[in-house]
C-alpha cells in the first residue's frame, strides 16, 4: 500500500514538474547537458534533473548514470572507490578528441534522489546504468559489478559495448611508486654520505648475506604468487576453525607462505649451526650443544615441512618423523 502511495506521489510530482516547468525541447536539453559536462565531466543529478534529462523521451544522446550513496553517514566504502573510477572514465571522455554530445556521464546520490532509487527498484549501491538514446534500459544496460568489477577499464569496455563509443581510459600516471623509490634512494645516499668516514658495513659480508637470504626466502615461499594472485590472509572453514594451510596444491594463503619461509629459514640456520659447531675453536660443551640444536632444527623443521607438503599433495606416500 505504502509503495503504491510512493509511486503515485512520484507520478504526481513528475506530472507536476512537467507541467510547471514545461518540457524543455531536445535541443535545449542537449545544450544544457553539454554545458554542464564541459564544466564537470560527471553531471550531478537530483530526482528532478534525472527526470528532466534522463527520463525525458525524445533523446538523441545516451546517459550513463552511477547510482551511489556517497554521504558519510551511509557508510558505503566501496561507493567512493567506484566513484573515483567513474570520474576517471568521465574525465577520459571529456578530454578525448572524440568528445561529443552523444554520451553523457552523470551520477545520482541516494540522498538527493531516493525516489528514483525506489522507482528503479535499486536497493544497493553503487549501480551503473546506461540509458540508451532509444528505448528503455535492458538487462545488459546495467554493469555486472560482481563479474567484471568497476575498474575504469571495465566500465569503459562496457560503455563501448553498449554505445559503440570507444573511450581510452587515461589514468594519471601513478607517481607514488617512483616517488617512494626516489625517497628511498635519497635516504640511502644520505645515509652513506653521513657515514662516509665509516663505510665498512658495505664490505661486511654478513649484511649482504642476510639480504640475499631474505630475498631467497621471500621468493621460494611464493610471495610473488601472493603478489600476483592476491589470496586471502587465512580462511575460516565451515566448522569455525581457522585454516592456515590451503588444502590443495594449487593455492596458498598469505600466512601459510610466512610459515613456510620461517621453516626454510630454520632448516638453513640448522645447517649453518651444524657446520659451524664442528669447525670452530671453542669450548667443546658449547659446540656440542650447538650441534645438537642445529641437528634438531634441521630434522624437526624439515619433517614439519614435509608433513605440510603431505597434507597438500594428495596421495604423497612419504613422511619423516612427523606424519
Amino acid at each position: 500500500m505504502v509503495r503504491w502511495y510512493y509511486l503515485l506521489l512520484a507520478f504526481t510530482i513528475a506530472i507536476g514538474f512537467s507541467e510547471s516547468k514545461k518540457e524543455l525541447t531536445q535541443g535545449e536539453r542537449v545544450q544544457q547537458l553539454t554545458d554542464a559536462a564541459i564544466k564537470k565531466p560527471i553531471i550531478n543529478l537530483n530526482s528532478e534533473k534525472f527526470r528532466q534529462f534522463v527520463k525525458a523521451t525524445p533523446r538523441n544522446y545516451s546517459v550513463v548514470v552511477m547510482f551511489t550513496a556517497l554521504a558519510a553517514n551511509r557508510q558505503c566504502g566501496i561507493c567512493r572507490h567506484a566513484s573515483d573510477e567513474f570520474q576517471l572514465v568521465g574525465n577520459s571522455w571529456r578530454y578525448s578528441p572524440s568528445f561529443s554530445n552523444k554520451l553523457f556521464f552523470a551520477m545520482l546520490d541516494f540522498d538527493e534522489g531516493s525516489d528514483i532509487f525506489q522507482q528503479l527498484h535499486l536497493n544497493s549501491a553503487p549501480v551503473f546504468m546506461h540509458f540508451p538514446a532509444k528505448g528503455k534500459p535492458k538487462k545488459l544496460d546495467t554493469l555486472e559489478i560482481q563479474r567484471v568489477g568497476f575498474s575504469s577499464e571495465s566500465i569503459a569496455r562496457w560503455v563501448a559495448e553498449r554505445t559503440e563509443i570507444q573511450i581510452r581510459v587515461f589514468r594519471p600516471p601513478n607517481y607514488t611508486g617512483l616517488l617512494a623509490l626516489v625517497v628511498l634512494l635519497a635516504m640511502v645516499v644520505g645515509l652513506l654520505y653521513l657515514r662516509k668516514n665509516n663505510l665498512d658495513f658495505l664490505y661486511n659480508s654478513t649484511t649482504w648475506g642476510l639480504i640475499a637470504l631474505a630475498f631467497v626466502f621471500v621468493m621460494t615461499s611464493g610471495q610473488m604468487w601472493n603478489h600476483i594472485r592476491g589470496p586471502p590472509f587465512l580462511q575460516k572453514t565451515q566448522g569455525g576453525n581457522i585454516a592456515y594451510i590451503h588444502g590443495s596444491s594449487q593455492g596458498q594463503f598469505i600466512v601459510e607462505t610466512y610459515i613456510i619461509a620461517s621453516l626454510y629459514a630454520a632448516v638453513s640456520l640448522g645447517m649453518v649451526l651444524l657446520t659451524e659447531s664442528a669447525g670452530k675453536r671453542e669450548d667443546v660443551g658449547k659446540r656440542r650443544i650447538f650441534a645438537m640444536v642445529g641437528l634438531a632444527l634441521v630434522v624437526f623443521f624439515f619433517s614439519l615441512l614435509l608433513s605440510i607438503f603431505r597434507t597438500k599433495a594428495q596421495g604423497y606416500p612419504y613422511s619423516f618423523l612427523l606424519k
Binding site: L213, G222, W225, I228, R229, S249, T257, Y264, V272, L305
Partner: peptide
C-alpha cells in the same frame, strides 16, 4: 603462471631448504 611454494618444494625437495646455507657460505 607464478610459482607457489608447493611447486618449489615439489621440484626441489630438501634442496630448496638447504641451498640458502650454501649461498651463505
Amino acid at each position: 603462471q607464478p610459482t607457489t611454494w608447493f611447486s618449489f618444494f615439489f621440484d626441489l625437495h630438501i634442496l630448496i631448504a638447504t641451498f640458502p646455507a650454501g649461498l651463505w657460505y
